[in-house]
Write a protein that binds this DNA or RNA. Structure first.
Length: 721
DNA sequence: TTAAGTATGCTTTTT
DNA sequence: GCATACTTAA
């Protein structure tokens, strides 16, 4: 029995209206996730629907994981056969499964932005295109848009005007697609596009998934694009058992191709739609909601609605005005430090900003005050150079056609296969229609390389073969460790005092830890050891949001975009200046401006207890100082809705991250370790050495820490006490 | 072929 | 002000 007594009447309606199309317009904090979870549980327990027949699409992996956990823990549902995931992960799964109907192999690599950029550079070179005239970012964006609208290269001119510029873009697009296929690689947009096309072209397959997914639920529907709409529409239009949940006021991804039309036209796209509005907010106090409502009412294209709450508050949101960005950071950190002394949990404090670049000053202040913080987002963990290098090794084992990855590692770590040699091999491949890997394999039999190059290449190839053989039996974690060991990756960074190298080593360790965790989860869920392919495709779709360390209490810093779907007791929204929010690139047209307003709205509605806004009178960007105006969104607000205060905060400029580096390099001569010696580590605190392997900075120390943890750590990271 | 030194260009937002 | 991309010297 599912206990529905904790739900309000509207939520109950969402849960129990299982047949036919349902549109849920759910305001911020109105318990939409809760409704989706209950609905899923209801379908399974009350309607006896097999989990196998349900598809739930979430916006992030994190949301998918939480949903799964709650179904397992609260409702005791085995989610083993239930499909929950983002569009991208669901599509990856389908494409891998249906490889016989596709023109690429199921071991395809998934290329991220960094890989894409490198592919574009090669294409530009080949086609002799000037990147100044055709900026890579813009062209990539246009191509992405085509894919999101299911326009293949050959259909380009059916939907785009033909002119000098578009001719070139079309050529780049088709060359790019061909390159990807040659490398057995797909980009993020391909995952959606090829799934949609597969369903569109192949009736048998479409039928199969239509019959499988008898009940479909989609969260954050306002941020879906045309390809996503089509994928679902193709398999849901017959049974119409589709429930979409969203809030047009929270649509913030139009720049990524999301089409707000999907939610506004849902009632036309499906028959006899039941529309349910959730307007009662359970998250924020009245004072904050008033401000949110007052803000969003300046947008026109929206379903009119007003959030209500029963949470009464005594305090109004605050608006702080600071002299510059350093003062702003000091002010926020000050406030957070006050909250901490009142025993508030740091995990419940978040700083939200418009651009990633704004995080730096906050880091500086947090560091200075010794308050733990974590940046969520920014550079994706798996996009860091050292991590991409390891992944490239793994990709090559699974997908030898992946020349991007091969190129990445052929001379990393340095093995004397330089630019000239690589050029010769590429030419050789071009002449013989070999893939890069094949021409490497065949280069030995020809005489265009000198003996030493040949030797180096054959050493490299035999290493790869060895790993590939091992990869068939060795668990992925062991394989990763083995490769890292074999290429002496740790040693490359270990000899350095550079903080960057130190953080690289920590990242590599974290990578191994993450792989172990994935492997454990995978075995627990499926009963099988993960294959390397399973692992690779999983990590390609991971975001930084998936890497939030929940064990350590820390203030969170993130962009407003990243905050979607999250909530915090204490929310700080910073940099509320024209040029930042709304962003200077969105200031020109009304549509963009409205999206910026929605972004602000999303940020405001994250707050459960207190909301503090701030802007500065001056701000340093690049090397010059700007004097921005306060955000126009502030001017729109009724002044009675917030408490304004002008602050002057003096800052001590003497500190900075570099000189106060957490780990001070210690001279080799001053370091030696013995069993029983007491040491301290930056992160783990005090401990005693149990075992020493090697000497000096290079020694591997086994340390028992005071907090009970047992760790192996390099000598260079600990301080002798 | 590689490491170190110098120039440039970049900042929205991300699955 | 940082990271990357290109240039130069060894």
């Amino acid at each position: 029995m599912i206990d529905l007594s904790k739900l309000n009447s509207e939520q109950k309606k969402v849960v129990t209206s299982t047949e036919g199309p349902v549109l849920v317009l759910a305001g911020a904090g109105s318990g939409k996730t809760r409704s989706v979870i209950y609905r899923t549980a209801y379908l399974i327990h009350e309607k006896n629907v097999s989990p196998w027949n349900i598809l739930v699409v979430t916006f992030t992996n994190k949301a998918a994981r939480e949903l799964r956990d709650r179904l397992e823990n609260t409702f005791n549902i085995s989610t083993h056969s239930l499909w929950i995931g983002t569009f991208h992960s669901v599509c990856t799964r389908i494409l891998r499964y249906e490889q016989e109907h596709l023109h690429f192999d199921s071991n395809f690599s998934i290329y991220d932005e960094v890989d894409q950029k490198s592919v574009f550079k090669k294409i530009y070179k080949k086609l002799q295109i000037d990147p100044d005239k055709f900026p890579i970012g813009r062209v990539r964006n246009i191509i992405s848009r085509q894919k999101n609208n299911l326009i293949l290269p050959e259909l380009f001119f059916k939907y785009n005007e033909r002119n000098y510029y578009s001719e070139i873009v079309a050529e780049i697009y088709s060359t790019y697609q061909k390159f990807l296929l040659d490398n057995n690689a797909l980009d993020f947009d391909d995952l959606l596009m090829y799934t949609a096309i597969l369903f569109y072209d192949n009736q048998k397959i479409r039928k199969k998934y239509e019959e499988k997914f008898k009940y479909i639920m989609i969260d954050e529907y306002q941020d879906t694009n045309y390809a996503q709409f089509k994928i679902i529409n193709l398999i849901a239009q017959n049974h119409q058992n589709l429930c979409v949940v969203g809030d047009d006021d929270q649509a913030i991804y139009s720049w990524r191709g999301a089409n707000i039309r999907n939610i506004l036209n849902f009632e036309k796209d499906y028959k006899n739609v039941l529309t349910i509005k959730l307007e009662l907010n359970y998250r924020s106090p009245e004072s904050i909601l008033k401000l949110a409502n007052d803000l969003i009412k300046h947008n026109d294209e929206r379903h009119p609605k007003e959030l209500r709450t029963k949470i009464i508050s005594k305090e109004k949101p605050e608006l702080a005005i600071l002299e510059n960005e350093n003062g702003e950071a000091e002010f926020v950190v000050d406030e957070i430090s006050r909250l901490r002394s009142k025993n508030e949990n740091l995990n419940e404090c978040v700083i939200l900003y418009r651009t990633n670049a704004q995080s730096r000053v906050f880091e500086k202040s947090f560091f200075h005050r010794k308050i733990k913080y974590q940046i969520v987002g920014g550079i994706n963990f798996y996009q860091r150079k050292e991590i991409k290098d390891i992944i490239a090794y793994l990709r090559i084992l699974v997908n030898p056609a992946d020349s991007e990855s091969l190129l990445r590692i052929i001379n990393f770590p340095v093995r004397g296969i330089g630019k000239k040699t690589i050029e010769k091999i590429v030419d050789f491949g071009l002449n013989n229609k070999y893939s890069f890997f094949e021409s490497l394999q065949n280069s030995g039999k020809n005489n265009f390389l000198n003996l030493s190059s040949k030797r180096k290449i054959s050493d490299f190839l035999s290493k790869i073969n060895e790993w590939r053989e091992k990869s068939e039996s060795l668990p992925i974690t062991d394989l990763i460790k083995m490769i890292i060991d074999d290429i002496h990756l740790m040693k490359i960074h270990d000899f350095s005092d550079d903080p960057k190298d130190i953080s690289r080593v920590e990242n590599i360790r974290e990578f191994i830890a993450a792989a172990t965790e994935f492997s454990d989860n995978f075995s627990a869920e499926t009963g099988n050891e993960p294959l390397l392919t399973d692992y690779l495709q999983n990590i390609s779709l991971q975001t930084d949001l998936d890497h939030v360390d929940e064990n350590e209490e820390s203030v969170k810093l993130m962009t407003m975009h990243n905050a979607k779907g999250l909530e915090f007791d204490h929310v700080f929204i910073v940099g509320l200046e024209d040029g930042l929010l709304p962003h200077s690139r969105s200031i020109e047209n009304e549509k963009d401006l409205q999206e910026e307003r929605r972004l602000f709205y999303v940020a405001v509605t994250r707050a459960k207890k207190t909301l503090i806004l701030s802007y500065t009178r001056s701000r340093r960007t690049f090397d010059k100082i700007d004097y921005p105006l306060p955000s126009r969104f502030i001017a729109e607000l009724d002044e009675n809705l917030y408490l304004k205060k002008e602050l002057h905060i003096e800052i001590d400029f003497k500190f900075n991250i570099r000189t106060e580096s957490p780990i001070k390099p210690v001279l080799e001569s001053q370091k030696y370790y013995k069993v029983g010696q007491k040491i301290a580590h930056q992160k783990f605190g005090k401990g005693v050495i149990l075992n020493v392997d090697g000497r000096g900075n290079d020694a591997k120390l086994t340390i028992s820490f005071a907090n009970g943890q047992l760790k192996k750590i390099m000598g260079s990271y600990v301080k002798v006490l």
